[in-house]
Each structure stands twice: as structure tokens, then as C-alpha cells.
Design a protein around this nucleic acid. Sequence first.
DNA 1: CAGGTTTGTGCGTTTTTATGCAGGAAAAGG
DNA 2: CCTTTTCCTGCATAAAAACGCACAAACCTG
Lengths: 249, 249
Amino acid sequence: MLKKERQAYILHQVHLHNKVLSASLCAEINVSEDTIRRDLQELSDEGKIIKVHGGALSHSFNEMSFPVNGVYSQNLKKIIAQKAISLIGNGMFILTSGGTTIIEMARSLPPPLKATFITGSIPAVLEYMQHPNIEVIMIGDKISKNSKITVGSEAIAKIKQLKADICFLGTNAIDLHHGITDNDWEVVQLKKAMIESSKKVVSLAIAEKINTVQPIQVCAIKDIDLMITELPIESEILKPYKSAGVQVA
Amino acid sequence: MLKKERQAYILHQVHLHNKVLSASLCAEINVSEDTIRRDLQELSDEGKIIKVHGGALSHSFNEMSFPVNGVYSQNLKKIIAQKAISLIGNGMFILTSGGTTIIEMARSLPPPLKATFITGSIPAVLEYMQHPNIEVIMIGDKISKNSKITVGSEAIAKIKQLKADICFLGTNAIDLHHGITDNDWEVVQLKKAMIESSKKVVSLAIAEKINTVQPIQVCAIKDIDLMITELPIESEILKPYKSAGVQVA
DNA sequence: CAGGTTTGTGCGTTTTTATGCAGGAAAAGG
DNA sequence: CCTTTTCCTGCATAAAAACGCACAAACCTG
């Protein structure tokens, strides 16, 4: 088994179970404990996991102790949220993924707005529930603990039955050639279904996510109708995307 | 169990219940009291908790003078939760409604437990998600904002497809003649479906709810397999229910 | 393609870490 | 004041990590 393969496998396991034991890994992959340890070390150096004695943990694991990570990008996300909200009209059916940008949008929804929001994201639902006038539809299925979203075939089947007016995707990585990409296979399946079931697809991405790539593709650039960032629309970074036919806001 | 995991668990418990006893922790996690003490020491050094003789307290605890809706009923609910948990075995499929008693149960689930919990209650899901080993299935549908639960025909249809080992119902009112009753039509529909889809039906009710009635019936007394209260099983209040054939715990 | 170099892997050995245990000190509570 | 519980200290042990080394495969490079 190749090193990269092995590390990808480890990463996958970590994302899946939130933890891995060096011992069990070395039994599964059939390499020496030393090799595993070196892999974990590397992945940890790259910031992809957190190494601890006896194994490693997912980063999302102890994020609970570091509560609201950055006020940092919070403000940027508010800008994005405002732009996104301007697209929403009364009576619309809106599909949303999870992610902090989506949460920020949920918090900023104007109280008089009447619309129907559909999502599988628990944190998003919590925000939508606060709102006096919107209807909230929860997509049910097994809950993925690290992404805090319902995933699985039931959820996908349910989404496919819908036809939403607009779909907002929290975006982890976007790139001209690879389109929107992400690192959680199940979440990607969900997002794909959402894109298919929406008349209009909107990607919400803070600038630092632009021109980055993750392992799994969600959709190509051409599938995106609109891309929202905190940057001014004349920004150099966005020009290639405009040329590629993506509307930018 | 990894050290970090353990500490995260302890931290979680502290935030949840505002206090932990070293003794109970060491029983739950199955490590020596010494280890727990060292963990508490570390967490305390990091300023995350306040260590005291016999256990630890949440930081927020001593700031806000006298806390929640009554430590009173909280403790009663813990007793109920413990009794309920004793019915749960590894590998079981468990349907639960919403309600504060259910939440208390969710918070008190022992970490090693592996089981699948199915619910439409958002607060319950939030608690279940914290647990390291259980699977959580969310029943999807429109969200009822005041009961924070998914309601509607989709949800009911989904529940009817299931056959759970056991069903825990948070109970608002229970009475010999009217059975379990409630005041929210949609929630009642949900509970009815849950009862139908479970091999065993357990009602969790604090004593003050016993012999009270609400407008809409969920089920008759005979449909309940087990009734859990904080009272000792010999209690006078429970005798009529025992006579009616309900098992009491 | 020969020879050097880098990279990946495994194997001892040494160090560090995690945990439990025992016995005395300190605290809490009568 | 006495008892019980909890806490601390040092020690023992086992597991895991780190380190250095060997060796082989892949990969330059002239």
C-alpha cells in the first residue's frame, strides 16, 4: 500500500470516527507501528489531525473547547451573508448546506421574511428556528457527528424529490479547474443532490477558500450560477471566474 | 479510551451538569480514581474547570448564583434517567420523543454504550451527538418551533417503517382513565406512531405529572409497557397503575 | 546505465507518557 | 476527637514515542 493511500485512509478514518488508535491502524493496514506513527506525525504537522498518545483525533473533536474560533473571519462572513440574503424573496423554497457561512446567513435573515428553508444541518436548523416567520424543513437521516449534518441515501432521496428556488452552498474549496471540492464524501453526496434539485446554485466562499482544492469534487465551475465572496466584484482574484461564465457578487 | 477523549468527556459532563464527582466519573469511564484526579488537575490547571474536593465544578457555576429552573426537578429527572438507561443494551434501536426528561437521559448515557437513537427532537439530537459511540438518526420533516421537533406526515411515515426495540416517551400527563395525554396535536401524532413502531413502550414521567390530564390522548394505559418515575416502586401513588397491569420502575 | 541520492520502511534501544498502586497527609463531617 | 473520604507523593510497570540505524526501492543525473 502506498504511503499517500495509507494517509488518505487514515484521514478518512479520522473524519469518520473522530479518532483512531495507532494499534488498530497498524493491524488494519498491516504495517509496522512506526510507519503509522510517522504518518500520524506528518498529518498532524500538516494540521489535518491532532496526534495524541496512542492515536489521533479529528480536529473538530476538541473544537468544542476552543469555542468560537475566529472572530477573525466572522465579519467577512457577515458581508457574504448580506449579499446572499438579497437574493431571497418572500415565498421562496431555499436549500442550504451546513457551514459557518450559512449559519451567519441564517442569523442575519430579516425578521419579516417569509420563506421555507430546507436543510440537513443541525446548527443551521437551530438558527432558522429562532426566526419568527420562516418555515423550516429538516432533512432526516443518520447524523454525521463531525459535520453535524444528516447524511445518507434517505436524505439524498428526499432532496431529489424537491425542486428549490435557490440553493446556498457553504464552500470549503473552490478552484477554476476542479470546481467546488470538499473532504467529506457523504457531505459531498448531499451537496450534489442539492445542486441537482435547485433552479439556481449559489456558492458562498470567503476569499481564502478561493483557488484551493480538496480531494472530492462537488460540482464543476459551470454548475455554479452565482459565486458570493466578501471581495468587491472588481477584484482581480475573481476575474478568471467571471471569464469562465460564473456570475459574481 | 484516549486521554484527550476522556478529558473532553469530563469537560462535557462539567458543562452539562455543572458538576462532576470523581467517584462517579471513575465508575463511568472505568479507570482508577487517580487517573480521574490527574485529569481534573490538568483541566483545572488549564483553567477549564474548577477542582474541588471530591470532584469539579463548571466555571460558570459559581458566577451565576442559583441556577436553572430548579435543581429540584433536575435531580428527579436524573433519577428517572438512570432507571431508563438501565433498560438500554448494546446494539438496541431506540425511539425517543422530546422533552426535558429525555434530554436528561441523553446526557446521562454511559460513554461505552453502542446503540442507535432515533428521534425528531432537535434538543435530543444535540445531546446524542455529543456521545462518542451511539448512532443518531434524525427523523426529518417540518419543524415545529415551539416543541422543537419535526412533525408531519413524512415524519410519521418514516417512523412507521421502523421497528424499534424500545420507545421512551417524555410524558406531559398521565392518568389511569385517559392514559398518556398531551396538548399538541402534531406531537401526539408523532408519539402515536412511535408507540406503534416499538416493541416496548416506556413512559418517563415525574410524579407531578401523574394523575393529570391534557386534551389529546396519546395512548391508553394498557399500551404502556413500563412507567418510570422518580418515586420508589412501592409508592402509594403508583399502586393503581400496577393494578392496571402497568409495570412500574 | 552506473552510481549516487532521496525516500519509505522496519528493527532495536532508549525515553517519555500514562496509569495504577500503596501509604501517609489533609480535609470533611460528624 | 475520631472516622471516613479524598488527596498527594513516590514508585512500578506497561505502553507508546522518539531516535538511530539498516536496507531496499524509487528516483535522479551525468
